[in-house]
């Protein structure tokens, strides 16, 4: 008769999937808040996005406050 036992073991291995997912979140978030000048919305709205700058204006105050270069 077998007995099912559950134990916790500590492993040092960090899942590559987690590193990949978090790296994507890091790069995307940093670009949106720190550097986008209409690039992301231009994928949908074309050249007009570089004039409207919706994301840039939305992140404008944080961009200045967090030390990123702005206009």
């Amino acid at each position: 008769m077998s007995e099912l036992r559950q134990i916790n073991v500590s492993k040092n291995g960090i899942p590559k999937l987690a590193i990949l997912a978090l790296s994507i979140v890091f790069a995307a978030g940093l670009f949106v808040v720190g550097f986008d000048q209409g690039h992301i919305f231009s994928l949908v709205y074309g050249e007009q996005a570089f004039t409207d700058l919706y994301l840039h204006e939305l992140t404008h105050d944080m961009r200045h406050a967090a030390g990123f270069p702005c206009h």
Partner: peptide
């Protein structure tokens, strides 16, 4: 547009925090 900019302060904080927090989590692990 000033109202739009101000309203984005906290939302942008959450986006930036999640982003930099992701880097922090990797380094901490």
């Amino acid at each position: 547009y000033r109202t739009w900019q101000k309203s984005g302060q906290i939302l942008a904080g959450v986006i930036l925090g999640t982003s930099v927090g992701a880097l922090f989590g990797i380094v901490f692990a």
